[in-house]
Amino acid sequence: NQASVVANQLIPINTALTLAMMRSEVVTPVGIPAEDIPRLVSMQVNRAVPLGTTLMPDMVKGYA
């Protein structure tokens, strides 16, 4: 099963992502692949992401 990127904390809108904000977890539906975590660092979210939410490509500016 593919691990996805999950929010490790509440991430406010327009926040630049850091490693501490993300974790890898096997979830359904599948979100951004966990191997993309290094690429996500310093990218901004375009909405508030609650703790435990799977990051989807449309939630991260410049990812999709």
Rank of each mutant, 00 (worst) to 15 (best):
I11F: 01
P29H: 14
T18V: 11
V26C: 07
R23L: 12
V26H: 05
D58W: 08
A20P: 15
D58G: 08
E25V: 04
M56L: 15
M22K: 00
D36F: 08
L51I: 11
Q9K: 08
V30N: 15
V45G: 01
Q44G: 06
N46S: 12
N8A: 12
D58I: 11
S24T: 14
R47T: 09
V5L: 04
M59S: 07
N46A: 10
E35D: 09
G62K: 07
V26D: 15
V6T: 14
T28S: 15
G62N: 11
V60G: 01
M21Q: 07
T54D: 00
I37N: 02
P50I: 04
M56H: 05
L10G: 14
A34F: 11
V5S: 03
M21P: 01
P12S: 11
M43V: 04
R39S: 06
M59W: 10
L19K: 12
A3H: 10
L19D: 12
P33D: 08
I37A: 10
L55M: 08
P57S: 12
N46V: 14
Q2W: 08
A20E: 15
N8E: 13
P50C: 09
N8P: 02
L19A: 13
V49G: 01
L10H: 10
R47M: 14
T15R: 05
V27F: 02
T18P: 01
N14F: 14
L19F: 13
S4R: 02
I32N: 00
V6K: 04
D36I: 05
M56I: 06
P57M: 09
R47G: 05
P33I: 13
L40Y: 02
P29L: 06
A64G: 13
S24I: 15
G52H: 11
V30E: 15
A16K: 07
T28C: 06
M43C: 04
R23N: 12
P57R: 08
Q2E: 15
V5P: 01
A3N: 09
T28L: 04
Y63Q: 07
P29Y: 06
M56V: 14
A20I: 15
L17S: 00
T18L: 07
T15F: 07
Q44D: 08
Q44L: 14
M59F: 08
L51K: 04
A7Q: 01
L51C: 05
I11P: 00
L19Q: 11
N1Y: 11
V45F: 00
L51F: 13
M22L: 11
D36K: 04
I13K: 08
A34E: 14
R39M: 15
L17Y: 00
K61S: 11
S42W: 10
P29Q: 07
V5Q: 01
A20K: 06
A3T: 10
I13A: 13
L51E: 11
N46C: 06
E25Y: 04
Q44C: 08
M59R: 03
L17Q: 01
D58M: 14
R47D: 10
L19N: 11
M43F: 10
P29N: 11
Q44A: 12
D36V: 05
G31C: 03
N46Q: 15
P50E: 10
L55P: 01
G31A: 04
Q9D: 12
V60E: 01
A7P: 02
A64R: 14
L51Q: 10
G31D: 00
V45W: 00
V5G: 02
Q44Y: 10
A34L: 04
L40F: 02
R39A: 08
G31Y: 02
R39I: 13
V6L: 09
I11E: 01
S4V: 02
A48K: 05
R47I: 15
T15A: 10
A16F: 09
V27A: 10
A3Q: 05
P38A: 07
D36C: 07
I13G: 10
M21R: 03
L55K: 00
S24N: 07
T54S: 04
T15K: 04
V30K: 03
A34K: 04
V6G: 01
M59Q: 09
A7W: 00
S42P: 03
M22G: 00
Y63A: 05
T18E: 09
T15G: 05
P12V: 11
N1E: 15
V5R: 00
M21K: 05
I37T: 07
M22C: 03
P50V: 10
D58Y: 06
V49F: 02
S42K: 08
P57W: 06
R23S: 14
M59G: 03
M43W: 07
V41W: 11
V26G: 07
T53S: 10
S24D: 14
V49A: 06
V49R: 03
R39N: 07
S4A: 04
R39P: 02
V6S: 02
T15C: 03
V26N: 10
L51P: 11
T18H: 08
L10Q: 11
K61F: 07
A34I: 10
P50L: 14
N46G: 10
A64K: 13
M21H: 04
T18Q: 15
V27D: 02
G52C: 07
R23Y: 07
Y63H: 04
N1D: 15
S4C: 04
A64S: 15
V5T: 09
A64V: 15
L51T: 13
L40H: 00
V30F: 12
P29M: 07
V60R: 00
Q44S: 12
A16T: 05
I11L: 13
V49W: 02
R47F: 14
A7T: 12
P38W: 09
P57Q: 11
P38I: 08
